[in-house]
Design a protein around this nucleic acid. Structure first.
Lengths: 199, 199, 199, 199
DNA sequence: AATGAATGAGCGTTCATTCAT
DNA sequence: AATGAATGAACGCTCATTCAT
């Protein structure tokens, strides 16, 4: 039992998650078999089980990744002080979602949609989704609060509720992009602008 | 028990779909086994296979039902001539979604979310989802066109794009309701109103 | 429960056997399902079971028919008194086999081959095959005895043994015809003649 | 138990084929279930499916074995130069068939008869049977050609046709042995001799 | 006599996981 | 640490047969 560096372990783990993500992106959580993941990862069954207790743990790891990814944007976006209108925040988010979707070989948003469904029957993923989305929505609430400070949004509005709506626009964008294939950040943003700009 | 009426056949079929919906609502498409559906339906394996070619066909039937359900609202809503602001249409839709979710023993929106994920890897369900959602979104586009006629929305806006946004708000509502559990038609509508009413 | 004439019963029974023979000729005994037979016969499940106890009985009926068919020839062939050399008897038999095979829509010899296999694991069919083939072989033994009387065959030969050989040529003819497809009564007879006519 | 030698794999495969042959010999191809083969082999379901894609492949393997077995004799018989009369070749073949039948626990000729029936509805087995029997019959044709060189058989006879007859005697021997139970290489050979030796 | 919907045991096969090497 | 052959419970589905009508 030769000892192995921590780096090695991390790299191996990532190798497995990457393989699994590829499989899940192509076939979904349930059609993906451990044999698929093992083959794609280039490791042996025993090795994979040395890093993950079982399929559930791998699925949870992928779902976690996919669910977290949008959050990254906000860390830099909100760090930059200054005015950020809700419309601008949404536009940046949509652009980021698309860039995520087109990155790598696998469309992360497809994994995300899988995760939504999975969350309804899998406690671990439910907890992750719940936490990640509460945090993400919280960022939108922050944006709303800034907008209220700016006077862009009425001061007496409930910022939580406005945050629900802003956050709530994202899943619909992802879904239409995947299933109807005809939404773009431009079309969606301009549609929102038209709704906002009351004549 | 031969020589059975058409009604009987339809009832039996519904019995199976209902049983399957219950199972899928509780466990998801993939964890639901045919044995589950058979047990829940109270029929025998052979009987179930007399009405459906296989599991895929049952899954497609449930997904179809779930995906279609919201459309019903629009048939009456749009039939009523007269002014219908986008905000009002959305509010009515959300109320309807909640009433659907609370109807029966099974929350239809949970099936809907399953169907989104399934559509990404199942051609038949993809086609259904695509068709149903294009139609549903089309109804919102109609509402937008009326609003443009009324002057509620700028005449030079692209109604398709505005329709994308209105339709796009629904999945986010469903998802937050299921995963975060704190959105209501009231909160969501008032959040939207705050966003719309520019000071 | 209306009474039905005996003719009607016989006709119905034949209808079922014919349907079953067609199916078995196309798919073999085991791939043929009762549903196939029921569909092909144009009757209902209940009706079929009114005439036969079950699949085994139908299979036995078909096998019986197929196994019996060659015997018919001998009844007329032997009835005609006069010299009948073994070679001539065999030739007539082969011609008859071919005519049986090409009769109707179904090749009876294919059913026969099925029956050979089935006889090895099915007591009823074994008994039938055993009886029919013993009788058929007996006819050849009669031919041999006549040939011995004529001096065509040595008087001290065991006619049973010669009968084994003559009868034994038939399955090989049937098999080569079905699987190699290149034997004819002519080729086979002339091959036998060449073997017999020692230079 | 990883890292297994090629020998081990071959042995395991044989273990499965042997088990399957035993089952098929007792019950026939169709009554033999995978559960039977699995139980008889002493392996697990998964292990069996690691060596064969499915039941069809196992059936094909057994049929192939059974159909090939007689060919072995000819390789040594024909290797020995020198006169080999058709009658002698046939006698040797019959002896060999009987020795095959009595070898092991399973009578290979029973499997062979199954294979004949199966070939009529199974392309793979048809192809195997066709090839094996064409080759086997070819060996008899070689014997006939030698006999023509020796003057044992008329030079102007078609050796292919004589080969058909010689080969054609085997199935009839096998069948009578299995179904009538009263033929032996001795009785069959002496019957043939009586037919050949024209007074 | 005839119907055909219903039954349910049992089929062939898969796949997450283990453990001797 | 790593291997991969082996496990076996559980899956989706078929089909000979029955029986209320």
């Amino acid at each position: 039992m030769p000892k192995v560096t921590e780096e090695h372990r991390v790299a191996r783990r990532q190798q497995i998650v990457d393989a699994a993500r590829t499989c899940v992106g192509e076939q979904g959580f349930h059609k993906t078999t451990m044999a698929d993941v093992i083959r794609e990862s280039g490791l042996s069954a025993g090795a994979v089980y040395g890093y993950f207790k079982g399929k559930d743990e791998i699925v949870a790891a992928i779902a976690d990744d996919a669910l977290s990814s949008v959050d990254l944007l906000f860390q830099e976006m909100l760090a930059a002080e200054g005015p950020l209108t809700p419309a601008a925040a949404l536009r940046k988010t949509l652009d980021f979602v698309v860039s995520l979707a087109e990155r790598h070989g696998t469309d992360v948003t497809r994994i995300g949609v899988q995760a939504w469904a999975e969350a309804l029957h899998n406690e671990v993923i439910f907890a992750t989704a719940s936490a990640k989305y509460r945090m993400l929505r919280g960022h939108f609430v922050d944006v709303v609060r800034r907008a209220q400070a700016d006077g862009t949004i009425a001061a007496d509005a409930n910022p939580e509720y406005v945050g629900q709506v802003m956050f709530g626009l994202i899943p619909g964008f992802i879904l239409q992009r995947l299933i109807l294939g005809d939404v773009t950040p431009e079309s969606y943003s301009s549609g929102l602008a038209a709704l906002l700009d009351k004549p």
